[in-house]
Design a protein around this nucleic acid. Structure first.
Lengths: 115, 115
DNA sequence: CCGAATCCAACAAGATACTG
DNA sequence: CAGTATCTTGTTGGATTCGG
């Protein structure tokens, strides 16, 4: 009986670490998840909260919707309103966000001491 | 008094999420941290555990060493041996790894149901 | 207001060959 | 064994423009 957590990087959908790494890579996913973890937000709100261009935000949100992390709701109003929320599996991501916040702050402290 | 967790993406070293995202972006950091979290490993061991080329692994390890996540120890033997271990702040990253493992497995389940 | 389309710059990462 | 050097490729993200 071997240890076998995950051996190859080719196993998206098998190893939790490989899977998560694929989803989190890139420059924005963690930040968007963090924003939406605080509640539903509109496109423009997200764009201002994070410093990101329209085109980039748009493609990121589309990708995350396809991956099942977020939901997009269109309200047929004038002017049009589009709201983004977390899916069930997206909401569960809060445990990762919490540990990232904790560790991130520790790392920031480490940076200060080093400097 | 505003909420203010982190508003702009330009604040590396200020916001824990922005900082962590910068460190974790790319395709390999989480996987390497996971491997080293289980104990010290040699270059060749890492290369086999993860499916990664020499050149890529080498540059990743160098970057992570500069960021203070890992330590590199050279044993002047023949044949040469180099061992990688986690630094103190690197070891603390295990809380993030644990939550990623948990959530990653949940996401894998979600994928199965969806399919 | 939201976001799609296009084009392009920057960077990440793989293949291969070579060194102490 | 543990890298480095170089070249090439693939992927991301940004600027700009246009449409519903």
């Amino acid at each position: 009986m071997k240890k076998e957590t995950c051996q190859t990087a080719g196993e998206f959908g098998k190893c939790p670490f490989v899977t998560a790494q694929q989803l989190l890579k890139g420059k924005w996913v963690i930040l968007i998840m963090h924003e939406l973890n605080e509640g539903p937000k509109r496109f423009g709100e997200l764009r201002r909260s994070i410093d990101i261009t329209q085109a980039t935000l748009s493609s990121q949100l589309k990708k995350m919707e396809e991956e099942g992390l977020i939901l997009r709701t269109i309200y047929p109003e004038v002017p049009p309103r589009v709201e983004y929320t977390l899916t069930d599996i997206g909401k569960e991501f809060h445990i990762v966000l919490a540990s990232i916040e904790q560790w991130g702050n520790a790392y920031i402290e480490y940076l200060k001491k080093k400097a």
